[in-house]
Design a binder for these strands. Structure first.
Lengths: 253, 253
DNA sequence: ATACACCTTTACGCAGCGTGAAGGTCAAAT
DNA sequence: ATTTGACCTTCACGCTGCGTAAAGGTGTAT
């Protein structure tokens, strides 16, 4: 069976340009040319083309393919192994790329839709650091290594949606707390609602909730300047009020 | 701070040719040129280059980068997401490539070190097909769809080492069977050993073993021409002998 | 004879620079 | 004042694996 360029091209599913190129670079020469210069391919060339296309499928360069199909089988196997190594490295790099692109997307989204996301990122880190510095030892001793690590991990892994929920919750706590102080009773309905919201809030950070830990945190709110200042912005004495409400809520008086 | 091409190139860790190219394609033009045509870059250009290099790290084309660094931030995020999709597709293709290269290596090695590997491949497929044709319905009815599918899947996924073990085991079964028939007693020690080996052999194909299924298979060995012929090659009447031994072994008389 | 499909060679284009070539400029050393 | 050597400039080709014309010759059916 003899084929002209286009016939062979159709048979093999490549373009005639490709066959001419393969002729040009010497990887697949026609069996002969007819009187008017037409390229004529025979069975041997068909087989060779099949081989070439097979290796091309594997992503091997035409130059390499030339070596492979002219070399004995064990050389071909070696070449393939080397090629595999290159592919594996490529995949490793690709994975790294994907990770980085994803990171970039995450940070870009943060920057565009809410520019305080970055602040939040920094804030989260700072919060953990501060937390570590001030209560690290104390907390770790009290609740164990694991709890602390989990809490930190959870904070860092919070999604944007979660963060938004947390921010909203914090606002709700403050306004409820404000209203509750109007009434003046830490055991009152509003104060207990505030304590309940606060419980919800800390479960965003803690992997496990316990009344003891909750009450302990409330104590810290009063004992620590930083936290006290935060709640006292709501209204002077808010930190103490919240502590009392939580103590009642948790029954840890 | 002002830089000439080479200074900036060193600072950024690229070649001066690269900077000239970036000027040429308009992605990074120098702040000005001095009286003799030297390119002079300023702080703004340094920053821009940093951005360009950052996105280049992510494998984005210079053309795309141009769009990204001139477009507002949300466009950048979209571009990045699209880029991520492309990368993920690339990885999928790469995985496919790697799989195929590995298959090719395996078969190339097979061809050079053991040419019956190919036969085995064909054999496995044929075995499943035959099995399906002859006992498909029957077996599926008896043991349920799942068992059959699992068996086929297991057979196709067998490694070469496993295959070798199976072949050895089959040989051992045959020779033990031969010796057992010498003695003549299906309940004898050697016959029971053969039955035990046969159990081992089928566990290579079956995901779960049951005495009932084992005894059922033994019945088939006698009932079916093909299997009967296989065992009768050991010695005439071997299929029946094995069936009896297995029936005793499984207590399913 | 004409149309139309097919063939040929030549050559630019693509991405992102590397690598010369040919020639001008700057600062320091002679 | 001149020479050296390190810079700078603008072309322009090369790399991969073809796609895509352009310009012109063939084969064959009508």
């Amino acid at each position: 069976m003899e084929y002209t360029v286009q016939k062979l091209a159709q048979l093999a599913g490549v373009s005639s340009r490709t066959l001419r190129y393969y002729d040009e670079i010497g990887i697949l020469k026609p069996a002969r040319t007819n009187s008017s210069g037409y390229r004529i391919y025979g069975q041997k060339e068909v087989d060779r083309l099949q081989q070439i296309l097979f290796y091309r499928e594997l992503g091997i360069s035409l130059d390499q393919i030339k070596d492979i199909i002219t070399a004995p089988a064990f050389d071909a196997a070696d070449a393939l192994k080397e090629h595999r190594e290159r592919l594996l490295e490529k995949r490793k790099q690709l994975d790294l790329l994907i990770t980085n692109v994803e990171k970039t997307i995450a940070s870009a989204e943060g920057r565009t839709t809410m520019s305080d996301k970055e602040k939040f990122e920094g804030f989260k880190k700072k919060m953990i650091e501060d937390n570590e510095k001030q209560y690290g030892k104390e907390i770790r001793e009290k609740y164990g290594e694991e709890t602390v690590e989990k809490s930190n991990a959870k904070l860092m892994n919070m999604t944007r949606e979660e963060h938004e929920a947390v921010v909203k919750l914090a606002e709700e706590i403050n306004s409820t707390l404000d209203q509750a102080m109007e009434k003046g009773d830490p055991a009152g309905e509003l104060a207990q609602k505030a304590a309940g919201l606060h419980k919800q809030w800390i479960t965003y950070y803690w992997s496990e909730y316990s009344k003891e830990a909750h009450a302990g945190l409330a104590e810290m709110y009063v004992a620590d300047e930083r936290f006290k200042a935060y709640y006292d912005k709501v209204r002077p004495g808010a930190a103490e009020f919240l502590r009392d409400a939580i103590k009642i809520y948790t029954g840890q008086q």
